[in-house]
Amino acid sequence: MKFYLEVWRQKGPDGAGKLEHYEANDIPAEASFLEMLDIVNEDLTKKGIEPIQFDSDCREGICGNCSLTINGVPHGPGRGTTCQLYMRKFRDGQIITIEPFRADSFPVERDLVVNREAYDRIMQAGGFISERAGSAPDANSVPIPKVVADQAMDAAACIGCGACAAACPNGSAMLFVSAKVTHLGLLPQGKPENDRRVLKMVRQADKEGFGNCSNYYACEAVCPAGIPASVIAHLNRNFSFASIKESIGITV
């Protein structure tokens, strides 16, 4: 197959950047999108053009390292990450525009590589259960209804790729924040510090400069882990309750 690529090239964090045109020739339909870029990069190297810099690691849809927006959609068409996107999904001869994930809190470092440390800092603000190795009771001492465990698992499946904020017209990280809040907040182990966690994580997301949720649901549409936007409702509810409690001095 053959494709006409429009690829965002940017020298460094402060560079202006623009789209460059490349051709991808002789691409097998079974190749993944990243393998297509590998082939293009080998070709560019042979021609003496610096290869396109893009992040990828596990290449099986779980590490969340790829950060490409393909034809305006983070991770490209279909559910899943870019590494799980296969070229047979595209038309032969199609023009494909590749840009980095865009959000003010994800500065572009080079070409298609973005910095997503803001997500790590949100996790550090409260995305954990305070507990130390050796202090845990027996794993079966607290039964957890299967439905609750399943819902927690649905939310815990987040891979932290940043596609939600990249797809959101407001650059909002609410799906990411609420996935973690929902995962930990549903489980009995996570309840003791739920209020504290919710307030801290939302405040950190605000501080990082992520936008506000306008309920566009673009995040849900692109999320490779299939996190439903209803987790944001869970977050909103918990945040409001936690705020009320904090305001009248009950907890936190």
Binding site: E99, R102, A167
Partner: peptide
């Protein structure tokens, strides 16, 4: 985005 697609939004 230069190529924009309002995926998922109404």
């Amino acid at each position: 985005y230069i190529a924009s697609d309002p995926v998922g939004t109404s």
